[in-house]
Design a protein around this nucleic acid. Structure first.
Lengths: 217, 217
DNA sequence: TGTACATCAGTGAACGCGCGTTCACTGATGTAC
DNA sequence: TGTACATCAGTGAACGCGCGTTCACTGATGTAC
């Protein structure tokens, strides 16, 4: 894990924690990774942060606000992973799209429970007025993909009739689908064999890219 | 819903229920559809079946056995939907694959919570010795797709280097991905607009099929 | 540099809740003779 | 057609559990003068 811990300071240096909010987010991500979404409880989280189970209420309105923050956080990281994957010297739009596909699946395989959390619908359910920070973080994460698709469309890399929106939907559907199925072990690849999984994912992504491409390259 | 209720007889005709097992499965699917996976509890289920909350234990070992049965049941229905979609007079393998893609997404859109249930990993977690009926039902559901892919590969409908396994993985990934994202509202189509959703799904599936196809048809 | 005081960020006890599961029970059903 | 009895499939009370959340509290921190 390359994740940088936000709560570097010693966990408790007195009565006040100092940075409990960040420590809760860190511990929350670790807890989700370890126990899964359903194993995530405020009380266990507080235990891990070395704090009473009422303390989190000074930083988050309730459980679901905390979960929403974890989701938003995860999307930010996914976005970073995608942007990083797309940073290839001299690569054209289609090559960047392919690289992001691999980066996407790699992220999912490396953070299975967190990935499930992100796509667990209505887990947080922001009510009236609502906190849509998770949605916005998600949209931002995919902005890189969308803009690569726009560039590819603009430069005639896609077949006739394939607009950038369709291409982005196809790419996202493909990588989300293959990542989810791999995590569930549904494609016959054992969970620990990351190399085989990535190899299969790449082949699947290639099919989609070929389907998008302008006929004779 | 075309689902046939298995518990046609009047709910209670005496002390004994008569067909409680089937009634529990029916009520369970309805409960999941209504409240989502997380809203599914044995006690609410028993309430709906008009039975004490200890009664289910005469038919299922525990909660997770019941959930597993619901998942298996759902896969059977999905398999039926796919097989039905593929029954097109005089259609070739590729046309059948396309039809199954549409049928798949249609099933997911029509049964969102049930679809989520099916892909909720480790929900049941069959332990040692284990009941793998859900897995087997899943495999059976996809047998139709796999055999269509095999036929298409055999008859040279796929591009060089695309074997039936890769094709099946690509198809399944695509439809699962687009269905999941549509259910989450992630593709910008409001949940109730089924026509628009299906239209988008079809375009995405077409991309994959074009990617699989032998070069000049 | 002190002092008074408001605010912040913790504590720990307590609440009610609904859950899955177990248990001794009892009424209904089916079968042997 | 009866009767005795085993088995089946319910009942309802009770169990312990961990949860999210609230509350009055208190120690620590920061600021005004």
């Amino acid at each position: 894990m390359l994740t940088v811990s936000r709560s570097e300071s010693p966990p408790r240096d007195g009565y006040h924690h100092g940075n409990l909010r960040a420590a809760l987010l860190d511990a929350g991500l670790a807890l989700v990774a370890e126990r899964g979404v359903d194993g995530f409880t405020l009380r266990e989280l507080s235990r891990r942060a070395g704090v009473s189970h009422a303390a989190p209420y000074h930083h988050f309105a309730d459980r679901s606000a905390l979960v929403r923050a974890l989701i938003a956080e995860s999307y930010v990281e996914l976005g970073r992973a995608l942007a990083l994957a797309a940073e290839i010297e001299g690569a054209d739009a289609v090559e960047r799209i392919a690289a992001m596909g691999t980066g996407y699946v790699r992220f999912a395989l490396a953070n299975p429970e967190r990935y499930r959390l992100m796509f667990r619908a209505n887990l947080a359910g922001s009510p009236d007025g609502g906190d849509d920070s998770a949605d916005r973080a998600g949209a931002r994460a995919f902005a890189v993909l969308v803009s690569a698709c726009e560039e590819a469309a603009r430069t005639g890399r896609f077949a006739n009739g394939v607009d950038a929106g369709t291409a982005a939907a196809a790419c996202w559907s493909t990588v989300h689908g293959v990542a989810s199925l791999l995590l569930d072990g549904a494609l016959g690849v054992p969970p620990n064999q990351e190399e085989r999984a990535l190899h299969l994912a790449r082949r699947v992504v290639d099919v989609t890219l070929r389907g998008l491409a302008a006929a004779p390259s």
